[in-house]
Amino acid sequence: MESHLFPIRIALLTFPVVAFLLTIPFLIYQYTKYHYVNKIRVLVTYSFLLYCITAYYLVILPLPDTRDVLGLYPAGKQMYQIIPFSFIRDIINETNVIISKPSTYLYLFREAAFLQAIFNVLLLTPLGIYLRYYFRKSFKKTILIGFLVSLFFELTQITGLYGIYNAPYRLFDVDDLILNTIGCFVGFVAAPIVTFFLPSYNRLDRNVDLDNMNVGFIRRFLALSIDWAIIVIFIDTNDFIQYVSSVFIYFIVIEYLTNGKTIGKLLTSIRVRGKGYRITFKELLIRYGILYYGLGLLNKLFINISEQYFVSQFIIFGLVFTIDTLVFISVLASIIKKEPFFYEKISKTKNIIDYKSSKSN
């Protein structure tokens, strides 16, 4: 039991790190394909990720203490088992079950050979469920994928974790291929029962009104982060001229030509819209003039004035702190009330979900 609990504990510790690293690619994929993030889809996807990590760790952990695994083996040690259904013989030889006496069947749950066979079946049972419900795979494809995943596990073992160890530290067993594949089949058959309380996958997006759905702040922040990451790669944002020109070209000119889209907005399926369907140059100039030329340059200008005219640093700090505090309070209030930000109200612009243009493409 401990040999199985240890990999599960490690998987639970690893999962948050892997999930965090995959969050941005996952969000971008959801926004570009579905134009929004469905909570059920998030739950199923991350549970599938946790399952994959756990299954893999159950196959490879615990690791040997030394890379010289071969030196630990006696001469002639068998490293593979290629006779199908040998597990049945092992169960019969090890158990005290009497076929004619059902009361002895409980003895099976005390036998290592039987429990190992059950474990190998259960290992890929969840995979069969995910393949049918979430990935919408047919029976044949599910069985094939289950077999290939099991083969991957066995090759991982027989290669000594891809050559890290000089010999396999676990037995390559053809019965594992059979039992794992059976487990995937069981999962496929049981999927409708297990997912009974979940909505049908085909109906997840049925009642979604993208026209009236607000663009969330996480989505906006992701788009903004992508855009500024691109800008920072090519320019020095501390240089006044480069900063002003890059903001003008990237956020005003390009968005005007693309009707409110940047690379970040494109990857998150949103765009900026004004009073009409097509954004105007004036609306963009007001929006980003306030946001990047007003607030973005304010701190730099104050510092430059202080250095050139020897104005008291305390006064400059007080002015900057007061303005930044007011902006922070305004933004926080907008987030709480779910209202447009102050620069959006002034420019009469807003972010909307851009799904119609992607459909037309």
Rank of each mutant, 00 (worst) to 15 (best):
F6P: 00
P7F: 15
T14V: 06
F15R: 00
V17T: 06
A19S: 13
F26K: 10
F26S: 09
T32M: 12
S47H: 06
F48Y: 11
I53V: 06
T54R: 10
V69S: 04
L70I: 09
G76C: 06
K77V: 14
I82Q: 12
P84E: 11
D90Y: 00
I91A: 09
N96P: 00
K101I: 03
S103P: 00
L106W: 05
E111T: 08
A113Y: 01
F114N: 05
L115H: 11
A117V: 04
A117Y: 02
I118L: 15
F119W: 08
L124R: 03
I129L: 10
Y130D: 02
L131P: 00
R132C: 05
S138A: 12
T142C: 12
I145Y: 14
V149Q: 02
F153S: 07
Q157I: 12
L161E: 13
Y165T: 09
D173Q: 04
V174F: 08
I178P: 01
I178T: 05
I178K: 02
T181F: 09
V186I: 14
F196W: 08
L198H: 11
Y201H: 12
R203T: 03
D205A: 10
R206E: 14
V208A: 11
M213I: 12
V215E: 10
V215W: 13
G216F: 06
F217Q: 15
R219M: 03
R220S: 10
R220L: 10
R220K: 09
L224S: 10
S225D: 04
S225N: 13
V232W: 05
I235H: 04
D236N: 15
N238G: 15
F240N: 04
Q242K: 02
Q242N: 07
S246T: 13
Y250L: 03
F251G: 02
V253K: 05
T258Y: 05
N259M: 04
I263W: 10
G264R: 06
K265W: 03
K275L: 09
T280R: 10
K282N: 11
E283M: 05
I286R: 08
I286S: 10
R287G: 01
Y288R: 05
G289I: 05
I290F: 05
I290C: 04
L291R: 14
L295H: 09
S306N: 15
S312N: 14
G318S: 15
F321D: 09
D324I: 08
L326P: 01
I329E: 03
I335V: 15
I336A: 11
K338Q: 15
K338F: 08
I346F: 08
T349S: 02
K350R: 14
I352G: 00
D354S: 07
Y355G: 11
K359N: 12
S360T: 06
N361A: 15
